[in-house]
Nucleic acid binder design. Structure first.
Lengths: 216, 216
DNA sequence: TAGAAATAACTGACCAGTCAGTTATTTTCA
DNA sequence: TGAAAATAACTGACTGGTCAGTTATTTCTA
């Protein structure tokens, strides 16, 4: 059977790229059909592999989802957390870039799909949810809370409860994500998405700003 | 709740109350374990029936979920829509009661669980999602938008985009629901839930209020 | 006794995860 | 060098279990 060497190789060896290819395929399908409705065999097919091979790289379907979280969400969460740790600089400006950061992430379908899946499968994978809470939610909210607290201390913001106000910041972003992706209102690449962020910032800044600081 | 005027038979035939009992059981289990993880047989057992009997009342598991939406969410959506239709009265006050209405609904676990399920199962039941969008989302957002638009026209609110601002109103409520129910942060009966609503109103009103109207 | 109400056993489809075996690539050493 | 040995990558049929929905049968009531 040794024929022309120009044939497309059936096997691709040295497969350091494989895990990522599996994740790419999985994400495509999770976005299109959801987590539960996607069979591991579908993922394998799309990655150009057999089902068994997938299990060489990931011990379970859940592990694939977990790896996706690590790859696409964690970096963003880390950036957000870094913004919150900044002890210096203008809280108002930092808040602005933080919202931009989250907004950009949520505008990216391949990023935004993950939280949706987590929410959806929450019941089935409590342990995954727990790790998401620790690694993403608490860090993100923590950063936001710190930022707002500092703004209040500096007199830039009115004396709101920082922890609660933090939810006012992320809430509309999450809501927009859900409306856009689940109920197909306002696609992500819509210019309205950008305008929504602006509107959010506008109302929020006005709502937070201390008396003397309006129209910043 | 269910009381028979005559004696209590061991087996209850002629069951006009049955459909509702099935819904009650289903909701209990959906809340506790999620939609997918709840078997129809579990629902039947809890309602004191056999699995087959459930299918005398509902043609499918999806139909049970659909009936739950009709029973628990639609009345609230209708109330919200009614508030939006009011051509008279103070938009600011109306907005306040509207938020209270939604907030109360979301504080009720047996109500709040439904949207969560819809979001979660969105991929599997596109047609159910579509009907939810039409009957709940669009009516709710429409009412809010109308209210805000009127506030802007009356000069009570700054000239924000009413449609976008509406998402700023519901966003934090949704976010709070998710954080509370999925990530087990701030249980619904927590006094913090009430304080969160207050904080939301506070920031929102300040953010929306026109120059002369602050501290309303 | 008719027939409505309900049951319990059943069917068929699905799918995550396994594993014995196959094929490509690399290493060994004559 | 080149062929055999070793190993890494991969395959796909199979298993075991789950569960929505159906049906043959029984039980209760009028």
């Amino acid at each position: 059977m040794a024929s022309t060497p120009t044939k497309r190789p059936k096997f691709r060896r040295r497969a350091e790229a494989r895990p990522d290819e599996v994740l790419d395929a999985a994400l495509d399908l999770f976005i299109a059909r959801g987590f539960a409705a996607t069979r591991v065999e579908d993922i394998a097919r799309r990655a150009g592999l057999s089902k068994g091979a997938v299990y060489l790289y990931y011990p379970s379907k859940e592990a694939i989802l977990e790896a996706l979280v690590q790859r696409s969400i964690l970096p963003i969460a880390e950036q957000v957390a870094a913004l919150g740790r900044l002890e210096t600089g203008d809280p108002k400006a930092a808040l602005r870039s933080l919202i931009d950061l989250i907004g950009d992430g949520l505008a990216e379908p391949r990023v935004a799909a993950i939280p949706k899946i987590i929410v959806g499968e929450a019941g089935n994978f409590p342990q995954l949810v727990e790790s998401y809470r620790r690694q993403v939610i608490e860090r993100g909210l923590g950063a936001l809370t710190a930022l707002i607290r500092r703004g209040v201390e500096l007199g830039q913001f009115r004396p709101v409860d920082p922890e609660l106000a933090a939810r006012n910041v992320v809430g509309p972003l999450i809501a927009h994500l859900l409306l856009a992706r689940i109920f197909s209102i306002a696609p992500a690449d819509d210019p309205r998405a950008r305008r929504f962020l602006d509107s959010h910032l506008d109302i929020l800044m006005n709502g937070l700003a201390a008396e003397g600081e309006r129209k910043a």
